[in-house]
Design a protein around this nucleic acid. Sequence first.
DNA 1: AACGATGTCGGGAACGATTGCACAAATTTA
DNA 2: TAAATTTGTGCAATCGTTCCCGACATCGTT
Lengths: 334, 334
Amino acid sequence: MFEPPTLKDIATALGLSTSTVSRALRDTYEISSKTKKLVLEYAEKINYQPNPSALSLKVRRSKSIGVLVSEVANYYFSQAISGIESIAYDRGYHVIITQTHESYDREKINIQHLASRSVDGLLVSLSAETADTSHLRDLHDKGLPMVFFDRIAEDINTHKITANNEQGAYDATVHLIKSGKRKIAHLTNSGQLSISIDRLKGYTRALQEYGITPNPNYIKHCNHGGMFYDEIESAVAEVMNLKDTPDAIFVGSDRLSVGCLSVLKNLNIGQDLIIAGFSNADVLDLFSYPLTSVRQPAFEIGQQATELLLQLIESKHPVTEFENRVIDTKLFVR
Amino acid sequence: MFEPPTLKDIATALGLSTSTVSRALRDTYEISSKTKKLVLEYAEKINYQPNPSALSLKVRRSKSIGVLVSEVANYYFSQAISGIESIAYDRGYHVIITQTHESYDREKINIQHLASRSVDGLLVSLSAETADTSHLRDLHDKGLPMVFFDRIAEDINTHKITANNEQGAYDATVHLIKSGKRKIAHLTNSGQLSISIDRLKGYTRALQEYGITPNPNYIKHCNHGGMFYDEIESAVAEVMNLKDTPDAIFVGSDRLSVGCLSVLKNLNIGQDLIIAGFSNADVLDLFSYPLTSVRQPAFEIGQQATELLLQLIESKHPVTEFENRVIDTKLFVR
DNA sequence: AACGATGTCGGGAACGATTGCACAAATTTA
DNA sequence: TAAATTTGTGCAATCGTTCCCGACATCGTT
């Protein structure tokens, strides 16, 4: 059964002690150059790889980071994950990805899982259902490095990185207004999510700046993030069945943008609607229904989040100053 | 810094030895029920979690499996991954996902990474560039359990699970023929991939059964799996610039199906073409260009692959009989 | 009362790697 | 040439578990 070579194997093969071999393999310090070369060459030859379990038991570092997202099958997150991996692998870290499927219970389980798996740090984007973040705060208080991206927890003091959701929502809403629409509905994720709050702000600000009073009936939340089709359908149906039917919709998430289009198509309504929404899909140009999209720099967000996390992990001194990075979105008019 | 409780902590707190505590926490054997209860309750109270590094160092099991796919941002793979996780987590295994981005070099690196990380087994779908599978065969020969799904390696003797690619391709091609087309091009992945071979077979069989001689000029391979837009564009352009222009295209992969549509749109050609292709996208109904799709049961394939792998991992006796599961696809005419 | 059988528990050696300390050999210095 | 210093290497403890093995108390049996 697959027995990789150990330090001891090298030591006995070369007639040295494990300590000498160990020292030869890491820094040069206090080892003659001949034995060092000897060891390095032999290790190379037999393709020696230090046992990660032994190593992490000894140095209390697993060289791996955990990622918590709602869904891998999501344009935004899959791009963000690619960004995360691009940095992590370069720096020698493994990436363990877990999905919450927008469930709070699942989030708690996964976080527990990751912590017990002794990851060196966590990259977190909250689930749609998560209102209470104490499971994360506990770990953070115990000293587990943590960086939030996209859906952040306001009450945990650490690095956070998001798109400029408020501005992106503002831009999209203004686009709808400038297209001549004034009855603009807003379909969005669950209300406690930071992204929902910020996007709602941008939407409201745009309306107000153009002299439109926000209509509470026009705002529909999907508390499970649109994980169930019925959830989206009933939200869309409700808003479209109002006596004062909207003439445009601004959608606050990737999944909901696509979901909203599906519902409209299936219900065969809203042909005269114009729609704008957050989405990182790369197939929007192929849609029969034009969707103006707010695109987030997901890959870069993943990269920067990872850089900040590794910075935390590898810092010798406890970090007390935290960044709150906000990156601009881009509007694609269709 | 985040010091989780250890066996010794429990032992000293309760005035027992670590051996007793250890025994109490695993199976009942040789432990009085009172002390067992005592230990279990205390462990529960302080939320004891065994240190995974120590555990895997001791028992040579990491309780984690590695997954190798080309891209997470791919309808098929993201669904397969959800299937993998659904089984793995239930059985107490962690899932480490790595992406090759269709690169052979990256595949070697990732496989090496996973092996050195001492995963208990591997779930593999080859990259588009991979022709030589010796890096995998070496590990397999050393006893690392391995299951292939989707893009399998013919020359490695282990469990394999795929969709019925030959039949799916046949069905799609027949659909095109029955729609009155006889000049059917085939755009597909790199030639050495098992899925390409099988799908080409199905395509060819359909043509022949309907008395159409396959035209080699109609078959275009993308050796990088369509990772670069240019690759798809030139393949599509080449086949569309033939003097005997095709009147239909059968596309052999998810990425290429969407890519092909994008190219046609951007080049503003092929409006009278009809297209069928393998795709697990859930947004095809929203496309302006109808795409008849062959859908694979990705989630189930992921699940079954994981079950087979765990079976291999947890088997006491070396397994010599391997399965070759083939699961039916489904045709969605649009 | 003495014996073995049984049931509980602790001691301690692993697993593979790192690292402080000791110590021998080589080199320099007086 | 002897002492002092430097240089290179090995010993052994340690990280948190598991598990073999031995210790010992209790109990029933004769």
